[in-house]
């Protein structure tokens, strides 16, 4: 029994990290259609903010979360205004531009904060393990799971039940007709991009106590995030939730029975096969192009 529970918990923990890094990407791509290759760098910047606030100002991680969200959201907003906004109808150019931005951000961090690996202290109140149905798990990992689900719920709520969400859905369906009805789509895009960036920053801050913080850390997460979003279906929030859950549980299980190298290979193989037969992803919304 405790084995089953601890295996499920391990999978959930993997899923929660996937969900955190993928959510921002899913929001941005789902609404604006921008393939943001600098997404991993937003995650990295979030982790560096957590590190900086802790070492320079002595802030605990929990107290830094909201400021980090705001900081990275502002950065996302600026990037949208300065770069992305000019490239909305040129998908190839946005890929190149965001990739270039990512490289620049990486090097700026390397030049200012240094190339050394960093770490962030775990909040003392959460650095212990707890018992759940006979299985032990790290309290911090459960906390990350809780935050990931809460963020998902918040995003879902904004998207489905607020008037802003209604406008977003209208824009997603057809931007020009939505604009004809008086929706300020430029503003909606800007806010979406800022929100997505903020969530990515938050993801980086939350995973920083578990991983090493380095200028290159973002590149692995952007791959994971794309995997989740592509599998889930690019315009479906629910798809992102389900696919991160699936990927986390499956890779946790495979890693337990074989090892992480095999697990990674098998999961990628499964995604390739699924995409071959269901290119729109598991949950596709019908959208007019």
């Amino acid at each position: 029994m405790d084995f089953v529970v601890s295996q499920i918990l391990t999978g959930l923990s993997l899923s929660s990290i996937l969900l955190l890094v993928a959510l921002g990407l899913a929001v941005i791509y789902g609404v604006t259609g921008v393939i943001n290759l600098a997404h991993g760098e937003f995650v990295m910047l979030g982790a560096y903010c957590a590190w900086m606030l802790q070492t320079q100002f002595g802030w605990g991680l929990l107290a830094s979360l909201v400021p980090i969200f705001i900081l990275i959201a502002i950065l996302g907003w600026l990037i949208e205004v300065l770069v992305i906004r000019h490239l909305y109808d040129r998908p190839l150019d946005t890929i190149l531009a965001t990739w270039g931005l990512g490289v620049m951000i990486q090097q700026i961090v390397r030049l200012t904060a240094g190339g050394e690996l960093r770490y962030v202290q775990m909040p003392p109140s959460l650095s212990r393990s707890v018992n759940i149905l006979g299985a032990t798990d790290s309290a911090y990992r459960l906390f990350v799971l809780g935050v990931a689900l809460a963020l998902f719920a918040l995003t879902w709520f904004i998207y489905s039940y607020t008037s802003f969400g209604l406008k977003l859905r209208a824009i997603t369906q057809n931007r020009s007709i939505a604009s004809c009805f008086g929706i300020n789509s430029a503003r909606a895009y800007r806010l979406t991009f800022a929100y997505g960036a903020g969530i990515a920053g938050l993801a980086g801050a939350l995973i920083s106590p578990l991983k090493s913080v380095s200028p290159e850390m973002g590149t692995t997460y952007v791959v994971d995030a794309f995997m989740v979003v592509v599998l889930g279906g690019v315009q479906s929030l629910l798809g992102t939730l389900v696919s991160s859950g699936l990927l986390g549980e499956i890779s946790g299980l495979l890693a337990y029975y074989s090892n992480d190298t095999i697990a990674k290979a098998l999961v990628l193989l499964a995604i390739v096969i699924i995409i071959r037969f269901r290119p729109q992803g598991l949950f596709a919304q019908r959208v007019r192009a």
Binding site: F3, S6, Q7, T10, S13, L14, I17, T136, R141, K211, S212, M217, T220, S251, G252, A255, Y256, N259, D260, T261, A263, K264
Partner: peptide, 20 residues
């Protein structure tokens, strides 16, 4: 005897095995 990919950063499955 187990090997993880270079640059791997998610050890929860490995730690689960340590536990069991």
């Amino acid at each position: 005897e187990e090997y993880v990919p270079l640059g791997h950063s998610e050890f929860s499955s490995v730690i689960n095995k340590f536990r069991s």
